[in-house]
Design a protein around this nucleic acid. Structure first.
Lengths: 336, 336
DNA sequence: TTGTAGGCGTTATCAG
DNA sequence: CTGATAACGCCTACAA
């Protein structure tokens, strides 16, 4: 199997340059020699050595995709869309799951850089740390390759951010809920990542503009559906009787639904519940979850499109924002 | 940034060979020169060129992971576990989602081969086609690199299969259900892939051994939770009044739960429902889903372990089978 | 249209 | 312990 371009050139009675030209679809090869070479390549099963090619061209057409956890439903979808789009544009994807520790994120990023990927896509707003200096390694990386940031924002040269306006989305639904007499909503989140903060601030802005007391409204939670449910039950039993729940992801919202059922609160009569991401979970829930759709596929398509433009030296925005959709289902009684 | 080993060697006043030795932790370098070179590398931010190294060593330590659809919850988990294990062993993962068309699977596999990955991991039994010749491309690929098959079986040189005994698992639960008076169960599946067939056959064996009529027991279904629900409703309304549902994945099972609720069948009193994969969905369902856990993490860990042994020229089994666990929850009233 | 030769940045062999 | 040099396989001016 150890075939190389010399072997092919010998068999064809031509020089390696001509073989290389055929390989790279150069027009300046006679049809006759081209066909001859092609048939020899075909029958010998020869494949150009990707490393050698990479060495000469300084690229192997691979993109590094970094995400905290590709088993997370949301991130898994992002990875799927990105890989598809990249493949359609002739690029392969190296996946690297970093976990949530800043140090690990940095190590993974450097690892991919050492593999000489052509660009890096950081998926998930948790890549942007609150402490600015913690993001320095990303800025440095941007000196070497373009960095695409999905659902995060970092203003710096060679960093391109594609995101969804979560602030507005959460503001809108909170405001709507309040104006529909669910005037005592709470907000549940896992992480105050970039988008986590956006969501929280959108929520609080709606609270403020409606002149509602803002104490005891924002709660951090963690764990699986059962953990969330139990957390809410104890919160409720402690006397905090809210009538609306805005969750920062669908899994939390499902925990909230289970809580409501456990406490015999009728959904959406006694309590409204809104999820986030409009994931597959939303339709698995009963009643089905109203959820904010943050246009993940659109974002991923745009990300790859933007990246291709960058490779092509076209002019490109450092920041692209899409607005979210609200998908109404059975955990609210709102109308569109 | 375009630093190479020559630049470093000049700055250090040594030859490139010595720099290379330091880079590769060769013991035969004096501590003095080693430290000098290391500090120069450090301050200059030099990184060895991975392509050049790959060219020389004929490996870039990358493994190709092929799966039909990495947004599928089950496959996403597999990809996550595999990437983690590979990374821990010094390998990077190139992900390639193939879709379900045989031709596309073949193209993706060849694409990865052309990138000179060190091995290929095919995730999901749908990679093994029923028509033997359709698998030829996999056998050919095995001439170039080791092929790891997760949840599929193909007996051939250099192909290593790690799987779960789905047959036994489905047999056991079906038998149990029947013996607990749920004597009219049906089996729902999406695809008759390798493991799909295992599951179906396990089901049918239990049916047969319990002397139960085997007509109108096995149904193909597709789509999302709502589609499954509607499919079952129409089946039920047509007069097919089963009292047990064994589903080939959790999403189908959730559709089944929704069907039962819609038809006012009490779970598990009137009907028992069993999912498969023990995914996150199982706990999102209400009542929570009894589900067959096919040990995905164990399988992935074993896969990478086996692969490392292969690289190490150790002796390795061509087939490793784990037994499944049954996780009892609220959609059955069985005891462990 | 085709061939020659240099360069890409390593690793590894063989002298010293 | 260190240095010179030949691979590794491809691409691409430049020459013919």
């Amino acid at each position: 199997m150890g075939m190389n371009i010399y072997d092919i050139s010998k068999k064809a009675g031509v020089s390696i340059a001509t073989v290389s030209r055929v390989l790279n679809n150069s027009p300046s090869v006679s049809t006759k020699t081209r066909n001859k070479i092609l048939s020899i390549i075909e029958e010998s099963g020869y494949m150009p050595n990707a490393y050698a090619r990479g060495l000469g061209l300084n690229s192997m057409n691979t993109i590094g995709i970094l995400c905290a956890d590709s088993s997370d439903i949301y991130l898994a979808n992002a990875v799927f869309y990105l890989e598809r789009e990249l493949k359609n544009n002739g690029y392969n994807s190296i996946l690297c799951c970093t976990g949530y520790e800043p140090k690990d994120k940095e190590n993974c990023l450097k690892l991919l850089l050492s593999k000489k990927v052509d660009a890096l896509i950081l998926v998930g707003s948790n890549f942007v740390e609150k402490t600015a200096t913690d993001n320095n390694y990303i800025l440095e990386a941007a000196n070497q390759v373009p960095i695409m940031l999905i659902n995060g924002y970092l203003k710096a040269p060679n960093i391109y951010c594609i995101l969804c306006d979560e602030h507005q989305a959460v503001y809108d639904i909170t405001d709507k809920l309040i104006k529909n007499d669910y005037s005592d909503p709470i907000f549940l989140y896992r992480l105050l990542s970039f988008s986590g903060i956006q969501k929280k601030d959108g929520f609080l802005q709606a609270i403020q503009e409606n002149n509602i007391e803002n104490e005891n409204r924002v709660y951090e939670c963690s764990g699986d559906v059962t953990d969330i449910k139990n957390y809410l039950i104890s919160l409720y039993k402690s006397g905090r009787h809210f009538n609306g729940i805005i969750a920062s992801d669908d899994e939390i919202a499902i925990g909230a639904v289970k809580f409501a059922k456990a406490m015999k609160l009728s959904i959406p009569k006694n309590i409204s519940i809104v999820g986030h991401n409009n994931s597959k979970l939303a339709k698995c829930c009963e009643p089905e979850l109203t959820s904010i759709d943050n246009k993940l596929e659109t974002i991923c398509i745009q990300t790859v499109l933007t990246l291709m433009r960058i490779f092509n030296n076209e002019n490109v925005a450092g920041r692209t924002v899409f607005s979210a959709d609200l998908v109404l289902r059975e955990t609210t009684n709102l109308r569109s």
